[in-house]
Design a protein around this nucleic acid. Structure first.
Lengths: 195, 195
DNA sequence: TCAGCCATGTAATGGGTTACATGATTGA
DNA sequence: TCAATCATGTAACCCATTACATGGCTGA
């Protein structure tokens, strides 16, 4: 039942289950609090279908848990074959792919076709979002004692800190430059439409 | 024929056509040289279907060009309605979405389940890819005289420089830390599988 | 009382990649 | 001679989101 070639997302789900056994609901929440920023925020429907697939090929097993005050749930855990498959995938060094899809940077690229004020505002908001995420990461570091089991997740937090710091820096400069170029062109020429 | 709600990718295609009229083939190449790093690298089949859709709703028009030494081609250009729609979309400030999907960072997150040496090597390669891209951007800056029409694309290049610099810095530190933790654990304990 | 959390799923639709299909010209 | 570039598309398939569907408990 193994030897399948699975999409990256399946391995991500498998990887999350190495931290602890989880229900589909839990897993979605855990993904949103961990890998969402650097890999993937799964839709809940996809979480459940992914778990079904992984169960079918034997990488994951489920167990029913009855609860009194909460709805009953199915708890999933990774199997030995699942661990082997995950490690094999990690070791196989999938040709690293880094994809960034940023509407803010796209809008900047097409900035000529919109009002500079709107663009500058959008970039400032982007900077604020990056700042909020940066603080979230710092908060996590402050509230968690370093432990050997955190070693690798901590490295990804450091990635997040570097990424958000660079983004904030860029946002500050870009917004400033757009604003100063607005000042020069004063009484703005009808930008964007027509022409 | 307008007033459609289109996916982001359609607006990206529309935006590329504001730079100049292009064939589908050209457009694919232009996308790969411009927005690919911060937004999207379209498959060619999608380029053509996107152009068909935009033509159908009147945002784009086509013109046949006969060539002697090269295959004939269809050249697409943005219409006035297309420009209006693009500007409207840009001005509407679509809630900025920034998505990063990095297998390198995911593998770091799951680093416990693979050999530290493989992980460190993967991170170093990642650093090299970022370095290559960084140099590409610097090369572009050196070979293009600043001009007013470049103002906004230049800002996105600055984003790329900031992003790649931060990534390289992170890669250097992360690889170093993984290697030094390897040295400590010497004669490595069978990491990853089983246990 | 009302929002938000816990809990699981199906159905419909559309997004997007990969493989298939073809073929001439140009430069190394 | 062989790879790369120019040039356009179809078909099959899977990935992924959104909307639909249900319902009890908890805390503000």
């Amino acid at each position: 039942m193994a030897g399948q070639e699975l999409p990256q997302n399946s391995y991500a789900v498998l990887g999350l289950l190495t931290f602890r056994e989880m229900s589909g609901y839990d897993l979605k929440g855990f993904a949103d609090r961990s890998i969402r920023h650097f890999f993937w925020a799964p839709a809940k429907s996809q979480v459940y279908s992914e778990l079904r697939r992984l169960t079918a090929i034997g990488y994951v097993e489920q167990r029913e848990v009855e609860q009194e005050t909460r709805p009953d749930k199915r708890v999933y855990s990774i199997t030995r074959e699942g661990r082997v498959a995950l490690t094999a995938w990690l070791e196989s060094s999938p040709p690293g792919s880094e994809i960034v899809k940023s509407t803010t940077v796209l809008r900047t690229f097409l900035g000529e076709h919109m009002s500079p004020a709107t663009l500058a505002q959008g970039i400032e908001r982007y900077g604020e979002r990056m700042g909020a995420w940066h603080e979230e990461l710092e908060g996590w570091l402050e509230s968690h004692e370093p432990s050997p089991s955190d070693f690798f997740p901590r490295l990804t937090i450091r990635w997040g800190l570097a990424y958000t710091a660079a983004s904030m820096e860029w946002a500050k400069e870009a917004a400033r430059e757009i604003e100063s170029s607005m000042a020069k062109n004063a009484i703005g020429p009808e930008k964007g439409i027509g022409r």
